[in-house]
Simulated scan of single mutants.
Amino acid sequence: MSVERHSQAVRASDRDRDEVLVRLHTAFAEGRLSEAELDERIDVTLAARTHGQLRAVAADLPATGAPRVAPEGSDRAPAGRFQLAYKGSVKRAGRWRLPERFTVAVYKGTGLLDLRAAELDGQVTTLRVLAYKSTVEIIVPPGIRVETDGVGVSAEVHGVPPADAPVVHIRGYAYKGAIEAKDRIRRA
């Protein structure tokens, strides 16, 4: 048996499957995979028994840590549009700038996005949130219109915002977790 065929047949561990799941969720958060593609590939990953099967699942995706191509006419890609937590947490609070498109991916951890003092770059802000076995909480200030879609996304926002209110559109996918948008923090 050749070395390459042997490495294809080596049994995959839970950690190997977890690494591929993080890669898939990152690709989803970057817009490389649709929700349907992500669901399909998660099923294949969880059923994979060998390294060869795992490699096939993500063969068309960039390698983890691959350099990103900057848009034409710029010296570098824009910063501050993506946050990832792997078995940890993401927290943004206080005064910070929120770009029109912002992505958060949390794998087996927690996330808090407190927008009450955030400076919104546009009238419509799109938050793409992925919570894999995680909870991501989004706190919005009064007077913001919140729109949600996806799986495992809920919103509890009180009052009626004015017609010209800024919009925060939350597109989310929670697998064995939750994405919660609210305008009040519950005290324990």
Rank of each mutant, 00 (worst) to 15 (best):
G150W: 05
Y132V: 01
A36Y: 03
E37T: 09
A77I: 01
S13H: 06
L115S: 03
S2D: 15
A118S: 06
A174H: 02
E180M: 08
H6W: 14
G73T: 00
K108W: 12
R5V: 05
E180C: 06
G88R: 11
T126D: 01
I179H: 03
T125P: 07
R55F: 03
E100N: 02
G152L: 03
I144G: 11
A93F: 09
R186K: 12
D39Q: 12
R171C: 11
T126F: 00
R186S: 13
A181G: 15
G143V: 01
R81T: 09
R32T: 00
D60T: 05
M1P: 06
D114G: 14
T45G: 05
R145P: 07
L115I: 01
V160Y: 14
A118L: 04
Y107Q: 05
E19W: 00
R55V: 01
A178F: 05
A29Y: 02
G143I: 00
S2K: 10
A181F: 08
H169T: 05
I185S: 14
A56T: 12
L54D: 10
I138F: 04
E147R: 13
R186F: 08
A131K: 02
K108T: 15
E4V: 07
F28T: 01
G150D: 04
S7A: 07
A155W: 12
Q8A: 13
A155G: 09
D149L: 10
G31K: 00
L130S: 15
I179K: 02
V44A: 15
Q8R: 13
G73K: 00
S134T: 06
K182G: 07
G177E: 08
M1D: 11
A93E: 11
T50H: 05
D39R: 12
L112Y: 08
L130E: 12
A27F: 06
D149M: 10
L130I: 11
